[in-house]
């Protein structure tokens, strides 16, 4: 039978696939995939800040501070974008800001720095029951909010001017999307790590967009590609004895490469 850690890994990959299909797809459609990477680094800064606060002032959960800091980074990028700043530049600035904060606090908490790094370098086969519970609650919350608001978010990322003319609050819905991406990224960090969050959120949606026609099928396609990549990574890791997340990233990238051959 499967080891409990493998079962948790499989559950995590299902949940990651849900985030990839929804939040990941919308970040690809919005054309701000680098945003995912920026948020992941914001999480490192937040975790380091959380540990520093705990050591210096009062107890603070690094994960919670990481989520708050990432949401702040997300909203700052969203506001700059709304103010007609190039979104790539806004992400770059916040990326630099986050890394500066991260390095600053990591140098101040030297002996505990590994705790902060541990939050963004995850392993899907080392998840505790608590990790799975946090991931489950995060994903269910994200999914509910996404299902309620995705139509307006879609209108805003497709044609913000027309949406605004039709009375849709563009800043509100763009900010909501950015916050959802931020929470999704931080929730997944512990499972697959910062770099592979990028791979598993962005690549399945990018590949699915090249294969399928409509919105629903593209989202469903992103779910399947992400799931196949994740489960494939776990399965192969049992034989090859290497990290499952890296194999999942390679499978997803290979699927994307195959879709490039489609006319």
């Amino acid at each position: 039978m499967f080891d409990i850690l493998v079962i948790r890994g499989i559950i995590a990959m299902f949940l990651i696939a849900i985030v990839a299909a929804t939040i990941g797809s919308f970040s690809v459609f919005r054309g701000s995939t680098f945003f995912v990477s920026g948020i992941a680094h914001g999480a490192l800064a937040g975790a380091a800040l959380g540990i520093f606060i705990s050591l210096s002032f009062f107890p603070a959960d690094p994960l919670i501070v990481a989520i708050i800091f990432s949401v702040f980074v997300a909203l700052a990028i969203g506001y700059a974008s709304y103010k007609k700043e190039d979104v790539d530049i806004a992400i770059g600035v916040m990326f630099a800001f986050s890394m500066s904060i991260a390095v600053l606090f990591l140098s101040m908490i030297r002996e505990y720095a590994s705790v902060a790094w541990g939050l963004i370098i995850g392993d899907v086969l080392l998840l505790s029951e608590e990790d799975i519970n946090i991931l489950l609650i995060s994903v269910i919350t994200l999914l509910i909010v996404f299902i309620i608001f995705y139509r307006k978010m879609l209108y805003v990322i497709f044609d913000p001017e027309s949406a605004e003319a039709n009375g849709v609050h563009v800043l509100l819905y763009e900010s909501l999307l950015y916050v959802l991406i931020a929470v999704g990224v931080v929730a997944l960090l512990k499972c697959v790590g910062a770099i592979l969050v990028y791979a598993l959120l962005v690549v399945p949606a990018a590949a699915s967009r090249r294969i399928f026609q409509g919105m629903a099928t593209t989202i469903a396609g992103a779910f399947i590609i992400s799931l196949v990549s994740g489960l494939g990574g776990i399965w192969l890791s049992m034989y090859l004895n290497v990290a499952p997340s890296s194999l999942a990233g390679l499978i997803a990238a290979s699927i994307y490469a195959v879709t490039l051959t489609k006319k």
Partner: peptide, 15 residues
């Protein structure tokens, strides 16, 4: 309102 078409984001796979 019909805005200028160049401002539409065609990354979105809408029908």
């Amino acid at each position: 309102y019909l805005p200028q078409r160049e401002r539409i984001n065609t990354n979105v796979p809408v029908t």
